[in-house]
């Protein structure tokens, strides 16, 4: 086994519970490579997750790991980070986890610009419960709870978090695994709230119902239907229609929450008001 896996994985917990061809494993190895590149101290790093397939990530990686309740990962992580800002905090969430039941926590973590890096694995479906539609299931796609096709509109996750105040927003895919590592590294370096949407394949609960049976077919679809944001900038709108934009979509600076709180403490203790 590769040295990076030996170092960042709890190898005694493997193999993981994810289905054959599930993209979660690819995202998690991209994360491990990012940790190596960042040179993080594992003792000083906390990895938090919510509920669903994505949430099992915390079982397998060797950090201070916290597997929380459905949708609440960011609220727990906010407590950890604010109480102990010296800790590095990463959060794994799924699409339903982060934008449906956890939607409120997501937008407020963005608004506060708290120094947490969120990796949202978007497989367009609730996988763990067997394939129900999520707020990121594309309109028209099928799910067990949308047997005639999804009639709701889906969120654009990156636009959502950008609008809510996240200071680093990127989108990658499991096909673009190496770039995903780069995005996680860049997100971690951002002093503020970073969101990396990792578009992923769920062959069992999504692909099967949507005419993409094999993991390979799904991962190749990601290759063919994405376009880098830099390349897209040079193309005509009709050339990028229907494509998923990937790459670093937004990066800006804003006051970070825990640093602001430390300043508040200094002000109060210094006799200010």
């Amino acid at each position: 086994m590769d040295r990076i896996y030996e170092k960042y994985f709890r190898t005694d917990r493997l193999p993981h519970i994810w289905c054959p061809g599930c993209g979660n494993g690819i995202v998690l190895s991209a994360f491990a490579r990012a940790m190596e590149e960042l040179g993080v101290d594992q003792d000083q790093t906390v990895v938090v997750s919510g509920i669903g397939c994505s949430s099992r990530a915390t079982t397998y990686v060797d950090f201070n790991t916290l597997h929380t309740t459905h949708g609440r990962a960011l609220a727990f992580a906010t407590g950890v980070k604010l109480a102990e800002p010296r800790l590095n905090v990463f959060v794994f969430m799924g699409d339903g986890d982060s934008t449906a039941i956890g939607g409120n926590h997501l937008i407020h973590a963005c608004r506060r610009n708290i120094d947490i890096t969120a990796i949202i694995i978007n497989n367009n479906i609730y996988g763990m419960t067997g394939g129900q539609y999520s707020p990121l299931t594309p309109t028209g796609k099928k799910a067990t709870t949308a047997p005639y096709g999804m009639i709701e509109r889906n969120f654009d996750l990156c636009e959502l978090v950008k609008g809510a105040g996240a200071t680093f927003v990127a989108r990658g895919t499991t096909y673009h695994a190496k770039q995903l590592t780069d995005m996680i590294v860049a997100g971690a370096k951002n002093k503020g709230f970073s969101v990396i949407e990792a578009v992923s394949q769920c062959p069992v609960s999504f692909g099967r119902r949507n005419k993409m049976r094999s993991p390979l077919e799904m991962i190749q679809w990601l290759k063919e239907n994405t376009i880098n944001v830099k390349a897209a900038a040079k193309l005509k709108p009709e050339d990028i229609k229907g494509k998923i934009l990937i790459g670093e979509l937004y990066n800006t600076e804003a006051p970070e929450y825990t640093a602001e709180y430390d300043r508040l403490i200094a002000r109060v203790q210094g006799g200010g008001k």
């Binding site: 938090v48 201070n64 916290l66 929380t68 309740t69 609440r72 609220a75 727990f76 992580a77 906010t78 407590g79 950890v80 980070k81 604010l82 109480a83 102990e84 800790l87 409120n104 926590h105 407020h108």
Partner: peptide, 13 residues
């Protein structure tokens, strides 16, 4: 809900 969650998160430190 978040109030309870953040309280638990802080306690873990």
């Amino acid at each position: 809900i978040a109030g309870m969650a953040a309280t638990i998160g802080a306690s873990l430190t």
